[in-house]
Design a protein around this nucleic acid. Structure first.
Length: 289
DNA sequence: CCCCAGTCCTGCGGGC
DNA sequence: TGCCCGCAGGACTGGG
């Protein structure tokens, strides 16, 4: 579930690892299938051990650990992965341990309950080839209204489905796509190619506002409790959700309609039928009555 | 190229 | 009480 705000919170939470030297990389013994390491555990060890962490970045839903060699260590939590510098929720799902020296944090941990996450080590060239251009779009907090329009406006897909396309814009996942469209007042099933310029401007503004607000609250920890920050603490944004996981509850904006859940591309979408009408004309007619 | 369905994985909750 | 099934949705792949 970690999307841009959760991954940004994880990245900020591990700031203490910058300047530390990675003394040892250890794949934890556990009864589950080992998580994917690209290209391999031995390559990760060879290229990371002895190196100093020179910086941290985030790209979409990935944490990027920059090494003094120029190599980039990419931590990709996917559904249930966590990046920690404190004790993880349990030991049994701990996947990878980076022992550190010379800094404030003794270790950097990758924990993943479902094991869908992935860890990669890339040269600068490999990093660009894998994580830019046609593979991964601009980060959702760096994109401009014009870029968003350019990358999505010709698509015939529903806007909610298109916002999940990481090659168009990186960082938005299933939860925040619903939140963004509610703030923008746009029905999630609207076809991208039927949206107008001012619709894209509202989607862009809502994207920035929702993601920044969620970062301020350190992300969303849903009822399954999986997401935690780098210190194994829950986020707070779940208490501010406009629509996500609120099916049947009254819309916090209009205070009249009830939130509806639909399925798009095999994923849940939540929206308010009053605040997000299918066509603008209908809502204008309603407003003028 | 565009888009969708299927796949990976584990934990949990509902139905019987 | 236990077992089975469906669901959760990150990214990727194969195929229409």
């Amino acid at each position: 579930m970690p999307e841009l705000p959760e991954v940004e919170t994880m990245k900020r939470g591990i700031a203490a690892v910058v300047g530390s030297r990675i003394s040892h990389v250890e794949r934890c013994r556990c009864r589950y299938r080992p998580i994917q390491i690209v290209p391999s555990l031995s390559a990760l060890r060879r290229r990371a051990e002895g190196r100093t962490i020179s910086g941290l970045a985030r790209l979409g839903k990935r944490v990027v650990v920059e090494l003094d060699s120029g190599d980039r260590l990419v931590l990709e939590p996917r559904m249930t992965g966590l990046v920690l510098v404190a004790d993880p929720p349990n030991r049994e799902h701990l996947r990878l341990r980076f022992a550190l020296e010379g800094g404030a944090a003794p270790e950097l941990l990758f924990w993943d309950r479902r094991g869908l996450g992935s860890v990669q080590i890339y040269t600068p060239e490999q990093f660009i080839a894998r994580l830019s251009g046609s593979r991964l779009g601009p980060d959702a907090l760096a994109i401009t209204p014009a870029m968003l329009h350019e990358r999505l406006a010709r698509s015939r897909r529903a806007i909610k489905v298109a916002l999940l396309d990481q090659s168009a814009v990186a960082g938005i996942g299933n939860l925040y796509a619903s939140e963004i469209l509610h703030l923008a007042g746009i029905h999630p099933a609207c076809r991208c190619d039927l949206l107008r310029v001012d619709d894209w401007e509202r989607i862009h503004a809502a994207t920035i506002e929702i993601l920044q607000d969620a970062i301020r609250h350190e992300g969303s920890t849903l009822s399954d409790g999986t997401y935690r920050n780098a210190l194994n603490q829950a986020g707070g944004y779940q208490n501010h959700h406009r629509v996500y996981d609120r099916e049947g509850q009254v819309c916090r904006q209009c205070r009249v309609a009830k939130i509806v859940r639909i399925v798009q591309a095999q994923r849940s979408t939540f929206f308010c039928p009053a605040c997000q009408p299918k066509s603008r004309r209908k809502s204008l007619r309603r407003a003028s009555r």
